[in-house]
Amino acid sequence: MTPLSQLLPGQYGKLTSLNPERSVDQRLMALGLLPGMVLKLVHTAPLGDPLAIEFAGQVVSLRLTEAQNILIDVAADCPIQRPRPQT
């Protein structure tokens, strides 16, 4: 399992868990991001933060700090498997 903040652009996988106590996760759930759903990291901003993710046909941006606790199970067929190098 990889934190969303460590995904590379193009990487995708299944959302394993959200923390409903956090307001970011509540927002994402309202947008229809629920555990088990596939999401893809589509962009990182030029300065490395925030990120843009795609799920259920929509693109949504969120900050790195907000993405740290969102865990992704990178899909087995995803061409990129390694996590983003830690900075």
């Binding site: 956090r22 307001s23 970011v24 927002r27 994402l28 947008l31 925030p50 843009a52 929509q58 693109v59 949504v60 941006s61 969120l62 900050r63 907000e66």
Partner: peptide, 10 residues
């Protein structure tokens, strides 16, 4: 005020 998460639809 509580800060809002920067969840923004593109």
């Amino acid at each position: 005020v509580k800060p809002q998460p920067f969840v923004l639809e593109l």
